[in-house]
Design a protein around this nucleic acid. Sequence first.
DNA 1: GTCTATACCGTGATAGAC
DNA 2: GTCTATCACGGTATAGAC
Lengths: 197, 197
Amino acid sequence: MSSSSSGTGPQVKRGNTRQRIQDVALELFAEQGYEKTSLREIAERLDVTKAALYYHFKTKEDIIISVFEDRTRPIDELIEWAKEQPRTLETKREVLRRYSEAMISGRQLYRFMHENQATMRELSIGEIVKRRIFTLIELLRTEDAPLADQVRCASALFTLHAGMMFLQHVDEQDPEATRLAALEVATDLITRAHGGT
Amino acid sequence: MSSSSSGTGPQVKRGNTRQRIQDVALELFAEQGYEKTSLREIAERLDVTKAALYYHFKTKEDIIISVFEDRTRPIDELIEWAKEQPRTLETKREVLRRYSEAMISGRQLYRFMHENQATMRELSIGEIVKRRIFTLIELLRTEDAPLADQVRCASALFTLHAGMMFLQHVDEQDPEATRLAALEVATDLITRAHGGT
DNA sequence: GTCTATACCGTGATAGAC
DNA sequence: GTCTATCACGGTATAGAC
């Protein structure tokens, strides 16, 4: 269904309040979790009252939805692109490469989605995210391959996430080095799955 | 809607209330998320009042902590066992095997931890879980191996989780078959990491 | 020892004044 | 566009019935 808060409309001149709410909200949602972040906290950070937020967004959920719609386009475009490509191993590798890169600029949002899955599941965008992940796995996997190879494709995706979310703290490793290592492992996984072992 | 064991509950037998609170709470926490589950909901399900919960547990957090402590021992024992073993490839394989099996019986708790990471991070048990995962990765990984191999060890663990949490819905696949496929992929990952390639 | 009644304050949300 | 006032519900706390 159409989201209640249209994405980046043509005219967003109404001051930058709306944009600032999105920025602050995403930052707090990613750091403290969705439910632990109160509207009062967001409002205070912007020096307005709770009710002021309700002028720009219908609900708390609307805020995260609008953020999601505004900053998630890269993945959408990646999926559209991939659908038109031949399903070669090289295409799959490129998908992983681009996905990993998309996570850099959108890391706050990805962190939020990763750490708030229970919340996401009940949000209206949860279904969209789920579908997207399934589509990506579908694009990566090989038809009629053994189950283990299907798992490898999914695991490749999760490895990228883990490399971004979790492994960043594992050592005093350079984050970019960790990301590239995760990308290497993920690429290796789909290569095996593609080759059929 | 109001549950109530119809009839003048002859078999209600107040005395196992604490255990029943834990069971209902875990079920709801896993299904709806920690924050979305209210104490009122838990109480209603048991036909008691909110305040009754506060006789058995000091806070909401206390409930999940007690559940955690009661049902997480298998992993603790697994870690203790692994620490005393030689760090051979076979030991690592056995760790993955046991971990995967532990997730079967404790799947509600694992699902809760997996989907409520933002919440877990602020709970007192969050730190314990984090440390546990790091310890497991430490036990799986090979000293001085390339970064990619370190990632492989972590990825092996996450693959087991994914196989249990996420991939269960991917197809009308037998859950046990999916679990074994994930175990196969995970084992393959640490094998490559161990060998150094 | 086990629970109920009741009240407190914070939270998301709504209606209406400026 | 923003605020005040108000609401029902959230976790929490205490007093007291059995």
